[in-house]
Amino acid sequence: MGHIYITFKDFRICSSCGSHSVIKFVLIMKSSSHTRDVQEKVVCLIMGSNLTRHTFGFIQSRLFPYYFHLGSACAFFNLTIFAMYHPSELLTEEETFQIIVLFICVTVAGLNAQWFGKITSEIMADMHLIEQSCGLGKDIGLSTNREAYIKLKESNPKYKKFSHQLTLYHNTSSLCNLCCIICNGISLYYMAANLSTL
């Protein structure tokens, strides 16, 4: 029996290979990836204002590697599944755009998992050691006792260097996360817009 293809702009799915299961799986992957990005921001805000600085940093350094690798795995699976069901010779402009968006998401998530996030955690751990030696880090919330941290920066060149590096890598990592949120949002939008054509 020949394969019947359903043109679903986001999927050209073969009817004989469990199309509904594949669609459900992809929708779960895409929505999970997008939800994970948003939840991470909310959780960080809550933890950052309710835990001591070093407890928050310790939790981040332990959880973020898993979070970043999970994000890059979700992005990779999204791209792989999309590419499997979209032969390059049959791609429309819209589908080409979606492949590019998914590729950007995979690249950015991979960089964040392997480099920016990892270095951010390492710098934070080094800074915590210096802060502990000065009796700092037990204050609740990231914005409390700022004067003491400013003084430490002024008096300790190594801590000042770490602080500048942390700002750079943390901001870059946050930018990567934002890029993934936008890419996943665009991908979800195209999927949702084309669900009615199934």
Rank of each mutant, 00 (worst) to 15 (best):
M1V: 11
G2H: 05
I4T: 12
I6E: 12
I6R: 10
F8C: 07
D10Y: 06
S19Y: 12
H20T: 12
H20S: 14
K24E: 14
V26H: 10
V26E: 14
S33Q: 10
R36G: 11
Q39H: 05
E40I: 02
E40Y: 13
C44S: 10
C44D: 12
G48Y: 02
G48D: 06
L51P: 05
H54G: 02
T55Y: 03
F56D: 06
I59L: 11
S61E: 09
P65G: 02
Y66H: 14
Y66R: 10
Y66P: 01
Y67S: 11
H69C: 03
G71P: 04
C74V: 07
T80N: 05
I81A: 04
I81K: 00
A83V: 11
A83C: 09
S88H: 10
L90G: 06
L91T: 02
F97V: 02
F97T: 08
I100C: 10
I100K: 08
V101D: 00
V108P: 00
L111T: 01
N112A: 07
W115C: 08
W115K: 12
K118I: 00
I119C: 00
M124F: 02
M127Y: 03
H128C: 03
Q132Y: 09
Q132V: 02
C134S: 13
I140T: 15
L142K: 07
S143R: 10
T144L: 10
N145M: 13
A148M: 11
Y149Q: 09
Y149F: 13
E154T: 08
K158W: 06
Y159M: 09
K161Y: 11
F162V: 04
S163T: 11
H164V: 13
H164K: 15
T167N: 11
T167Y: 10
T167L: 15
Y169K: 10
N171Q: 10
N171Y: 14
C176E: 00
L178H: 04
L178D: 04
C180D: 05
C183H: 00
C183L: 03
N184I: 00
S187C: 01
Y189T: 02
M191P: 03
A192K: 12
T197K: 12
L198G: 13
L198I: 07
